[in-house]
């Protein structure tokens, strides 16, 4: 079989492109916001898998009280030894995390601590290194505790905890609706921005007018969502109360989990700073 003759490309395709290299265009604010929004939606769509505590599953309200107590203690305590004890306590808890969770914890904790340190860095020239070091240590410890709570507590547990602590139903319901509709509104905003980007040829002359229309539209969308949601709530027999089934918990275990923090509190009271 004879080989096929080589197909010649048309002359205009062979010619080298004469167009000058364009500098990478600066990312517009729309693209930047799209990137942030996508990250948020990914986070909301695939919430971080929380660690399953089979043996030591604590009541949600105890988890919340522990977090508040720890943050409060760290803020109050100025004794390095007591702060060290609290850090060791957290370290033991971190041992229960899976390696991937631990890596995520370290990454976000490091970034947030760095931001806090940057803010306080100029105080080095005002008050010296001791304030900077002490402030950095305490802030990092607080951020680590808050980050551990975020990583190990599902959103539903937060709502159950608030309910158990007698938070008003209006606030709990608002929280529940907010987190659900954050994803829906975020999706709507992202689609609007994508549509705008596709339809816009030249950079917007008045970007603020565009943003005004975008958020005005988003507000009207949220109003229609609210009407639909209320109709659905009424159809399901909504009576104005937030109801959640509570799972039985071992009270002794809950109290026992609080004991190290209470011990540090007692030490703080009697030993002081």
């Amino acid at each position: 079989m004879d080989p096929k003759p080589r197909t010649e490309l048309p002359a205009w395709l062979i010619e080298k492109s004469t167009s000058t290299k364009r500098q990478a265009a600066r990312t517009s604010f729309l693209q930047r916001n799209q990137r942030h929004l996508r990250a948020l939606l990914t986070r909301l769509a695939q919430p971080a898998p929380v660690i399953a505590k089979r043996r030591w599953h604590l009541a949600p309200q105890i988890n919340l009280i522990r977090l508040l107590l720890l943050v409060f203690l760290i803020a109050l305590i100025n004794n390095v030894t007591l702060l060290w004890c609290l850090a060791i306590l957290l370290g033991f808890q971190l041992l229960l995390l899976s390696p991937s969770q631990l890596r995520r914890f370290v990454k976000s904790w490091f970034v947030s601590s760095l931001v806090a340190l940057i803010f306080v860095l100029p105080s080095y020239w005002l008050t010296g290194p001791s304030t900077l070091l002490f402030f950095g240590l305490k802030t990092s410890l607080m951020l680590a505790n808050a980050q551990y709570y975020r990583l190990t507590t599902p959103f539903q547990d937060l709502l159950s905890g608030l309910k158990a602590l007698h938070c008003p139903d209006v606030l709990i319901m608002t929280c529940a609706i907010a987190i659900t509709y954050l994803r829906m509104l975020g999706q709507h905003l992202l689609l609007t921005m994508e549509a705008l980007e596709l339809r816009t040829v030249a950079p917007a002359k008045h970007p603020y007018r565009l943003i005004g229309a975008m958020f005005g539209n988003l507000y009207l969308k949220s109003y229609s969502y609210a009407l639909e949601l209320y109709a659905a709530m009424e159809a399901r027999g909504f009576n104005g109360h937030y109801v959640r089934t509570t799972t039985p918990h071992n009270r002794w275990r809950d109290y026992l989990s609080l004991s190290p923090d209470i011990l540090v509190l007692i030490l703080f009271i009697f030993w002081g700073n």
């Binding site: 604010f29 930047r32 916001n33 942030h36 929004l37 948020l40 209006v170 319901m173 608002t174 929280c175 529940a176 609706i177 907010a178 987190i179 659900t180 509709y181 954050l182 829906m184 509104l185 975020g186 905003l189 943003i211 958020f215 988003l218 507000y219 949220s222 109003y223 969502y225 609210a226 949601l229 209320y230 709530m233």
Partner: peptide
């Protein structure tokens, strides 16, 4: 009532929009 929750998410989006 539902508008409160939706407005909270709207406020969240406003605060994160650069």
């Amino acid at each position: 009532l539902p508008m409160l929750g939706i407005a909270a998410s709207l406020a969240f989006l406003i605060m994160m929009f650069n």
